[in-house]
Amino acid sequence: MRILSLLSLVMLLHGGFAHAQSTFGIGSTPSEAQLNAWDIDISPTGEGLPSGRGNAKEGVEIFANKCIACHGNEAVGGLAPRLLKADVGPNADPWEFGKILPIRSPYAPTIWDFINRGMPLGQEGTLSANEVYALTAYLLNINGVIPEDAVMDAQSLPKVKMPNVENWAPLPDYKPGMDRLEGYPY
């Protein structure tokens, strides 16, 4: 395939066309192992979530062992950011709960993704998929999003309805040279 495209390029050059070179034949094909190990991102709708499962009860114990030192008891009061929504009354806009990932995030898989890629501090990448599901369930539970016994896995997590799912502003469709905001002179 690559050799063919190079061949056609050579033919183009010999034909005297001033075409820009389309490919250069540089780089190597990553191994399956590299692709699998590096491809860690989870889409907002849950593409990429691995097999495994966990609930909030299991999450309590893991949180106590691996998270409390920085995030504090009940996910409040540590050096690291609090993970429990602010108490702002029953009819508050969910944005008033504060910049707390497991309540502000419009999509639950984002919580899984961040715990998996970034926690615990200094030991990133050491949590098993089951542990990440359990911790995600625990944080969703203490923030009142799911019940204590709800099992989170690749099927159920994307179906969790976050309070902000329709409560965020999409970015404008980017086009080169566009106004930052239509009709805005500044």
Partner: peptide, 26 residues
Amino acid sequence: KYWMTYNDYGHLRQNDVDAALGYTIG
């Protein structure tokens, strides 16, 4: 599609004007 990574989440805005003007530097 828009992947809404953790970094993206951190800069989410609730209102369209804030979101539009938060993208590029004026």
